[in-house]
Design a protein around this nucleic acid. Structure first.
Length: 351
DNA sequence: AAAGGCCACAACCGCCGAGCA
DNA sequence: CTGCTCGGCGGTTGTGGCCTT
């Protein structure tokens, strides 16, 4: 048995509000306030409306100082930035924009901002795909040359190594988690998992694809998912995402020596113009190897101030996942004045 | 000029959590 | 502790106006 309806559905009017209804509601609330009981309010003033409908009408339309339409660039940026940080918490986002309602912002996001982001994303996707094809081809050729030289040096029959015949990608998958800063004074939303989920959802909505592996948990060190297709980790390589170098236990590091350009290109490709991925604060575990690097808030902040936040679909899909800075970054962020000062330019992508 | 498609926005629906008896 | 009510929220739908063909 379901819950009792909030009102008698048969006797309430639905659909657009008439000016008379608006006037009745507004006049009553102006004089008496809501009385703390929206459900009873429509009966008091003789409106055949559901109490929730009255509340919504008041909050979204009749309330004083409500702004409609005409979002400024700054408002765009704030919405975008906060959405990336906290997800679809429209009421919180609305609280940062005086005169705007959560419904307004939600509509604006769904009808315009999201499309703007997608349009930009597609452009970047096309460019990145082109770059990746070129890089991949180059790497394949180099690998072939190295392999041939290796075989020749060790007097091995050509292409006898199973390694050569495997369809191993030239770079590892990126861990499936990523942490973004919390909004100041919104403690209920300061848990890292929520941020990860929000951003993950955003990227999925924008066309990305994520592994649902256990690595989506909030941990500073992440193992690659075991259910992924053949990846570098499967072959016991370690790969420093930041320097592009392979670990000592790697099976075939020599095959990658001399590929400095490739490393740089991969770094550019993977991290690209990406504020989070560019953050050089990862602890990345590839198989059995863990690579720790510097951590800090400042890099996130600086990147947030100057970079596109769009994650090209192909990067998300091809590399599977994003990486997560150490967890304690979240709490450090809560103590910073990040959102009081630094969120505005985060969406340069919109321009 | 008319029809169909698209878009923006208002409003509704249903779930959830807080507060209270 | 439990169950109920209400407010709040986010997702979804309906509708009217504008644009394109």
């Amino acid at each position: 048995m379901g819950r009792a309806p909030c009102c008698d559905k048969a006797n309430v009017k639905k659909g657009p509000w008439s000016p008379e209804e608006d006037a009745k509601l507004k006049s009553y609330i102006d004089q008496n306030g809501t009385g703390g009981n929206w459900i009873a309010l429509p009966q008091k003033i003789g409106l055949k409306r559901c109490g929730k409908s009255c509340r919504l009408r008041w909050l979204n339309y009749l309330r004083p100082n409500i702004k409609h339409g005409g979002f400024s660039e700054e408002e765009d940026n704030i919405i975008c930035s906060l959405y990336i940080s906290i997800g679809s918490r429209w009421s919180i986002i609305a609280a940062q924009l005086p005169g705007r309602t959560d419904n307004d912002i939600k509509n604006y996001w769904n009808t315009r901002l999201k499309k703007k982001l997608l349009g930009k994303q597609r452009k970047e996707q096309a460019a990145a795909a082109q770059a990746r094809r070129a890089t991949s081809l180059k790497a394949q050729e180099q690998l072939k040359r190295e392999s041939t030289a290796f075989e020749h040096h060790h007097n091995l029959p050509h292409a006898s190594s199973a390694f050569v015949n495997q369809t191993v990608p030239y770079w590892p998958e990126i861990p499936a988690v990523l942490t973004v800063p919390a909004v100041n004074n919104q403690s209920s939303y300061n848990d890292g998992s929520h941020h990860q989920e929000s951003l993950k959802n955003l990227l999925i909505k924008l066309g990305g694809r994520f592994s649902e592996s256990p690595s989506t948990t909030t941990t500073a060190t992440t193992n690659y998912p075991v259910d992924q297709p053949c990846t570098v980790q499967d072959h016991a390589y370690s790969f420093d995402m930041l320097t592009g170098t392979y670990g000592a236990e790697a099976v075939g590091p020599a095959m990658y020596q001399g590929l400095e350009n490739l490393q740089a290109e991969l770094r550019e490709l993977i991290y690209g113009n990406n504020p989070v991925l560019l953050d050089t604060t990862a602890t990345i575990t590839t198989g059995t190897s863990t690579t720790s690097v510097d951590s800090g808030i400042s890099s996130w902040e600086s990147e947030m101030n100057g970079s596109s936040l769009v994650y090209p679909t192909n990067m998300v899909s091809e590399y599977g996942n994003l990486y997560q800075p150490p967890l304690d970054q979240d709490s450090a962020f809560e103590e910073s004045s990040y959102f009081n000062t630094n969120y505005v330019n985060a969406c340069g992508v919109l321009r």
